[in-house]
Design a protein around this nucleic acid. Sequence first.
DNA 1: TCAATATCATTCATATCTAAATGATATTGA
DNA 2: TCAATATCATTTAGATATGAATGATATTGA
Lengths: 158, 158
Amino acid sequence: MRPFQDSLPMMLYRVLGELLPHFRVIFSEFGLTEQQWRVLRVLWQRDARPLLALSEDTLIPGPSLVGVVDRLQRAELVRRQRSSDDRRLVRIVLTPKGRGLEEQVTPRVDAVYLALEELLSTREWGLLRDYLGKIIDRAHLLDQQNRAATQKGGADEP
Amino acid sequence: MRPFQDSLPMMLYRVLGELLPHFRVIFSEFGLTEQQWRVLRVLWQRDARPLLALSEDTLIPGPSLVGVVDRLQRAELVRRQRSSDDRRLVRIVLTPKGRGLEEQVTPRVDAVYLALEELLSTREWGLLRDYLGKIIDRAHLLDQQNRAATQKGGADEP
DNA sequence: TCAATATCATTCATATCTAAATGATATTGA
DNA sequence: TCAATATCATTTAGATATGAATGATATTGA
């Protein structure tokens, strides 16, 4: 049996645990958390995103994102803008201050990504991305398999 | 430039985001969180681990682990045992109840791992593990590269 | 031996995650 | 049109992450 530490989730956690601190030291220089940076990173690419779309783009869960945006707003880096055509939507909009941060942070982050490339060959990076992408694309198969296994096991149905 | 959503950290987050819910539904059936299960999973393999070792085994940071163990202790699944030869150490020990949970949870978790295998071929799984392992092993190179880049940039030295 | 230093577990403050619930607004079908 | 349902943002409660600090105990070197 494979040691627990070599299970896929634990390996993914370990990779993230090795890589993220290198980015966080940069973010903290600008008074940002990782999640705050993720929001800015998306807005720099596409401003005035509704909160739900921002949640999907950044992988930050809705309830967490509300607080992240609160703190970005308090730092005067973004503001909330209630949509007029669909009043349920709240668009998150960069302030000039928030926009100005891009050119300061981005080169520092890019430098880490550049250093990262050294860890594997181009071919290996390509395959790694390929496999991770396949897992993401095919993960929906797990729902069905589990459901089938549960039914076969004779669990209680609604 | 690669889209932000396809950066390595975001891809790792997405894979975890797809996989972990399948495990969490099992844990919650037994009143466990993912972290509580990780602690039990390690103790089932090696009981009476000191807290610091448990933190390294489970990748749960020390300050978080204190709380996780508190709640496992409240659920009467583990207990704390102060070491006599080095009184700084606290060993975490399974109770009979905690030990008994193993045979109930493990087959359910194994079933998910088995379903997981379908997502990639054996060869692809092998390579994926290989690449993740290489990143973990070589991550220390990033420290040095960053330090070199900072020095070359002429940052302030102590 | 004793003072400086290191290690281990814990605490603290703040931020985030997870799951469930809520209020406001839109949409839909009878 | 209106009641049922869906969607969006938010709130809540409990658990965990992060970074810094602290108290207790060990270890080390002068």
